[in-house]
C-alpha cells in the first residue's frame, strides 16, 4: 500500500503511517478471536476452556457440554457474519450518500427487510432461510431506493437530515404495517417477536449456513470498493474527472450494501447502530482512506456485535438481553452525542 492515488491530497497528512495501520489491523484480528472465544465460553452455563478445546478436537454429541459448545459456536459464527455485514454496510452507505448518519437501521433498510420477511412468513407461508432471504433483499432494496430518492429530492440534494428523516418516517410506516400483519396471525407473531428484537439466540446451523455465502460474497465485493469510494468522497465532479464512472460505482456499492443488510437481517433480525458506530470508529482510527476504513470495519463490526452479545448474556443472567437491545441502548446515546457535537456536513 505505498501508492496513494485514491487519497484526497489535502487529507493525506491526517492519515497515520501504513505500518501502524497494519499493526492495528492485526491487533483487531486478535481481538475478534478473543471475543469469539469469550462468546463460546461465557454464558448461563460457563464452560472451561479445556473442555472447549476437547470439543474442538473430538466432538462427542453425547456430552452435554459439547452440545452447548456447538450451539454457541454457531451463534458466534452468526455474530461474526452479522457484525461484518452491518459494519461494512454502514461504511458503504456513508460512502455513497456522503452522509455521516447513514446506518442500515436509521435509514430504515433493516426495517424494510424485516417487513418483507414478516410478509413472506405470514402471507406466503415461506419457512426456510433460503426462501425468505430473497424477500429480505427485495425489502431492503425497495426501502433503500425510496429513502434515497425521497431524501435527495429538492434543494441541497440528499442532506443528512432529510435522508435521516425520510428513513425514520419510512421505518415508522413499516413498523405499523408489520404490526398490522402480525395481528392477523398469532403463530407468526409468536415466532416473530423473538426475531424482531435483533438477536443471535437460537440461530441454528440450518439458518446460518445457507446465508453465510451471501455475506461472504458481499464482504469480498465490499473490500474491492475502497478506491471507488475514495473517488466518490471527492464529490461527483472530481470523481468523474478522475475517470471514475460515478453512476456505476454508486449502483454497485448500493447493491453490495443491500445484500449485506438483507442477509444480516435475515440471520439476526433488524439490528441498529452497528454501521453507524463502526464507520465512525474506523474513520477515527484510519483517517479518510476507504481502503483502510473497509478492512477496519470488517473487523470492528464482529468485535462490537459479539461483545454486545456476551455483555447481554452476562448482565441479564440467568436470562439474556438480546444483542439488538444492547446495541440500541449503547447506540442511541452515541447518535445523540454525534448530533450534538459534530457538524453534520462533516464527511
Amino acid at each position: 500500500m505505498t501508492e496513494r492515488t485514491g487519497v484526497p491530497s489535502g487529507q493525506r497528512r491526517r492519515a497515520p503511517a501504513t505500518y501502524r495501520l497494519t499493526a492495528g489491523l492485526a491487533g483487531l484480528a486478535v481481538l475478534v478471536l478473543l471475543v469469539s472465544v469469550l462468546g463460546v465460553v461465557i454464558g448461563a452455563r460457563p464452560i472451561e476452556l479445556s473442555v472447549a478445546l476437547d470439543a474442538l478436537r473430538a466432538y462427542d454429541p453425547g456430552i452435554a457440554e459439547h452440545q452447548v459448545i456447538a450451539d454457541r459456536a454457531v451463534r458466534t459464527l452468526a455474530g461474526l457474519l452479522v457484525g461484518a455485514a452491518l459494519g461494512l454496510a454502514g461504511v458503504l452507505m456513508q460512502g455513497i450518500t456522503r452522509n455521516p448518519l447513514a446506518d442500515p437501521g436509521l435509514l430504515g433498510i433493516n426495517a424494510g427487510a424485516a417487513f418483507a420477511v414478516v410478509c413472506a412468513i405470514a402471507l406466503f407461508g415461506v419457512t426456510t432461510a433460503l426462501g425468505y432471504v430473497w424477500f429480505a433483499f427485495a425489502g431492503a432494496l425497495f426501502v433503500a431506493v425510496v429513502v434515497y430518492v425521497v431524501g435527495s429530492l429538492g434543494r441541497g440534494g440528499a442532506t443528512p437530515v432529510k435522508v435521516a428523516l425520510a428513513g425514520a418516517a419510512v421505518s415508522a410506516a413499516l413498523v405499523a404495517l408489520t404490526t398490522a400483519v402480525l395481528l392477523t396471525d398469532s403463530v407468526t407473531f409468536d415466532q416473530h417477536r423473538f426475531w424482531t428484537v435483533g438477536s443471535l439466540a437460537g440461530r441454528d446451523w440450518d439458518l446460518v449456513a445457507p446465508l453465510a455465502p451471501f455475506v461472504v460474497a458481499g464482504v469480498v465485493a465490499a473490500l474491492f470498493l475502497g478506491r471507488a469510494l475514495n473517488a466518490l468522497s471527492l464529490g461527483d465532479d472530481v470523481a468523474s474527472g478522475l475517470g471514475q464512472r460515478v453512476g456505476l460505482a454508486r449502483a454497485v456499492t448500493a447493491v453490495v450494501a443491500v445484500v449485506l443488510c438483507g442477509s444480516a437481517t435475515a440471520i439476526a433480525g433488524p439490528i441498529w447502530f452497528v454501521g453507524l458506530f463502526v464507520a465512525h470508529l474506523a474513520r477515527l482510527v484510519t483517517g479518510p482512506d476507504y481502503r483502510w476504513i473497509l478492512p477496519y470495519s470488517l473487523l470492528l463490526g464482529p468485535v462490537l456485535v459479539l461483545a454486545a452479545d456476551v455483555l447481554g448474556r452476562v448482565i441479564a443472567q440467568p436470562g439474556e438481553l438480546q444483542v439488538g437491545i444492547v446495541l440500541s441502548l449503547l447506540g442511541s446515546p452515541f447518535l445523540i452525542l454525534l448530533v450534538r457535537y459534530r457538524k453534520l456536513s462533516e464527511l
Partner: peptide
C-alpha cells in the same frame, strides 16, 4: 437537532418495547 435526537430516543424505546414483548 430536535428531530434527530427524537429519532435516537425512538430507537432506544422501540428496543425496550421489543424486549418486553419477548
Amino acid at each position: 437537532r430536535l428531530v434527530l435526537v427524537g429519532v435516537a430516543m425512538g430507537a432506544m424505546l422501540t428496543s425496550i418495547v421489543s424486549y418486553c414483548l419477548t
